[in-house]
Deep mutational scan, measured.
Amino acid sequence: EPSQADLDALLSAVRDNRLSIEQAVTLLTPSSGGGSGGGSMDAKEILTRFKDGGLDRAAAQALLAGRTPA
C-alpha cells in the first residue's frame, strides 16, 4: 500500500509530466490488473482531475489513499 510520501511523489511526477497518468495508475495498482479498488473514482480519473486542476493535492491524495486496498 502506498504511503502518503509515495502518493505525494507520484502526484508531483504526474503534474510535472515526469510520469504519465497510465504509468501512475500501473504503479498504484500493481497486482489488481489495473482495476479500481472499488472506490467511487478510479485512480486514472483522480489523477486526470488532479492534473487538470479539478482536484487539489490533498484531495487527490485522500482519494487515492482511500481507494487503495489495505
Rank of each mutant, 00 (worst) to 15 (best):
R57D: 04
R49E: 07
R49K: 14
A9Q: 08
G38C: 14
G35A: 15
Q4F: 15
L7W: 06
G38F: 15
G37S: 08
V14H: 01
L19C: 05
P69F: 06
R15F: 10
T68M: 12
G53T: 02
L27P: 01
R57W: 14
E45L: 04
P69R: 01
G39S: 11
M41V: 08
V14I: 11
G35K: 02
G37K: 07
R57Q: 15
G39A: 14
L11R: 00
G33T: 10
S12K: 06
Q4C: 15
S3D: 09
G53E: 03
S20I: 02
T29H: 12
E1N: 13
G33S: 13
T68A: 15
S31I: 13
L64W: 02
R49Q: 15
D16F: 04
A58D: 11
S20V: 02
S32W: 15
L64E: 01
L55N: 01
A70I: 09
G66M: 06
F50G: 00
L55M: 09
G38A: 13
R15Q: 11
A13M: 12
R67Q: 09
I21H: 00
S3H: 14
D56Q: 04
L63N: 02
A24K: 00
D16V: 03
L27T: 04
L7I: 10
D52N: 15
P30S: 14
E1C: 08
N17D: 08
R49C: 11
P30G: 09
A65C: 06
S3P: 10
G53M: 03
S20H: 03
N17M: 04
G37H: 11
A62T: 10
L10M: 08
A59T: 14
Q23K: 07
L27H: 05
G53D: 02
P2Y: 15
L28M: 08
T48E: 11
D8Q: 09
G35Y: 07
R67N: 10
G66A: 11
D8V: 07
A59E: 10
T68G: 14
A60H: 00
A5N: 14
P30W: 10
A9I: 07
E1T: 13
T68V: 14
A62W: 03
F50A: 01
M41R: 04
G35N: 09
M41W: 12
G33P: 12
Q61P: 00
D56G: 05
D8E: 10
L7M: 07
G35W: 07
A60M: 03
L47A: 00
A70W: 02
G54F: 13
K44G: 05
S20Y: 02
L11H: 00
D6Y: 15
G35C: 14
R18C: 07
Q4T: 15
L47I: 04
P2L: 13
S20C: 03
L47E: 01
L10Y: 04
D16Q: 07
S36C: 12
K51Y: 06
E45D: 12
Q61I: 15
G39V: 10
A5Y: 15
Q23D: 12
R18D: 07
I46A: 03
T68Y: 14
E45R: 03
Q23A: 13
G37A: 07
V14A: 01
L11V: 02
R67M: 13
K44M: 05
T68I: 11
G66D: 12
G39L: 12
S3I: 11
V25S: 04
T48G: 06
I21C: 02
D52Q: 14
A43P: 10
D6Q: 15
G34C: 13
A58L: 13
L27V: 03
S3M: 15
G66Y: 09
D56C: 06
K44Q: 10
S36T: 08
A58M: 13
G37F: 13
S36M: 14
P30M: 06
F50N: 00
G35I: 12
E22I: 05
A13H: 05
A58T: 08
A59M: 08
A65T: 12
G38P: 13
E45I: 05
G54E: 14
A62D: 08
S36Q: 11
D8T: 07
A70V: 13
S3Y: 12
N17C: 06
G37D: 13
G39D: 12
S40K: 04
G39P: 12
F50V: 02
L27W: 05
S32C: 12
Q4A: 13
E45P: 02
L11C: 02
S12Y: 04
S12P: 01
S3G: 15
V14E: 00
D6T: 06
R57H: 09
T26R: 10
A24G: 03
S36A: 11
G38H: 12
L27D: 02
T26S: 11
A60S: 03
A13I: 02
L11P: 00
A9T: 09
A13W: 06
Q23N: 07
A9D: 12
N17K: 10
N17Y: 03
L28I: 07
A65H: 05
L11W: 04
L28P: 00
R18P: 00
L63M: 09
L63Y: 07
Q4S: 11
T29Y: 14
G35D: 08
